[in-house]
Nucleic acid binder design. Structure first.
Lengths: 133, 133
DNA sequence: CTCTTATTGACAAAGATTCTCAATAAGACA
DNA sequence: TGTCTTATTGAGAATCTTTGTCAATAAGAG
């Protein structure tokens, strides 16, 4: 039997593994550019485009969270696959995962009340962590 | 008495008024590029840089909300100056303002509990509105 | 009306992200 | 294991958004 109709088969490559690993090592959110620099510093010859492609795949697969920074760049972070939100330090980027069952319900409810279907939401809390004061 | 020390005096110009007005006319979130197109279509000779500058000013003054789209561009929308959040249609961009006193408290509390000061947050709900189904 | 200087518009410049395409190598199968 | 198909890669070009530069303009004060 052939593939459904359009999605091509994925392949495992050392480059993907390297990006995944580097993302896991990072303490907070990092940009594709930063990740590329880090990888090259460690001797990798990976291409920038590959980093972008891999991060986009990871985000789509739910293995990474993405976030838009103030400078119009996208930041990524490895995460658990379960739904959660973030508490992020504005200075050092330290990130904590937050769970909020009530919020999920509230958000879906607000959407439904106003006739919106397929609800989703973005919730991020920012602040300055204890260590940065 | 002279101005405090650094902030220069603001001046009222037809260009700023035009951007403000165009932003008010828009139904949902729009990008600086879109707004510039719209203005030119209506005969204005306003420059793109001026649109960017004016929108940034409005956002800082709390007269407009900004939002990062998926395509790494910033979207703006005229809004009330009081704090609020948005319920946005993924298809047509229709936007409703949402108030949630409890949320504000919750967000600040979560930040404080984890030792974060100067809390702020981004909360947006997305969905598909009744008209788009 | 005059004078100071904030603002403007056209263009260049900076960044981030995506696209293109020939070369490479993962995975399937004999 | 060797061969074959084609997903993936890397380098650079191309695109797009946003910011900076700077001479010319015009808002607001006196």
């Amino acid at each position: 039997m052939t593939q459904a109709n359009s999605a091509p088969a994925k392949r495992n490559t050392p480059q993907k593994a390297a990006v995944k690993h580097a993302l896991g090592e990072a303490t907070g959110f990092v940009s594709a550019q930063q990740l590329h620099q880090t990888l090259k510093k460690h001797g990798s010859t990976i291409g920038l485009a590959t980093v972008y492609r891999t991060l986009a795949d990871l985000a789509q697969a739910g293995e990474a969270d993405s976030l838009q920074s103030k400078d119009a760049e996208v930041l990524y972070r490895a995460c658990t696959t379960s739904h959660h939100h973030h508490l992020i330090c504005r200075k050092c980027g330290l990130t904590l995962e937050i769970e909020a069952q009530n919020l999920e319900k509230w958000a879906d409810q607000v959407a439904t009340e106003h006739g919106f279907s397929q609800p989703s939401h973005n919730i991020d809390i920012f602040g300055v962590c204890a260590g940065c004061r």
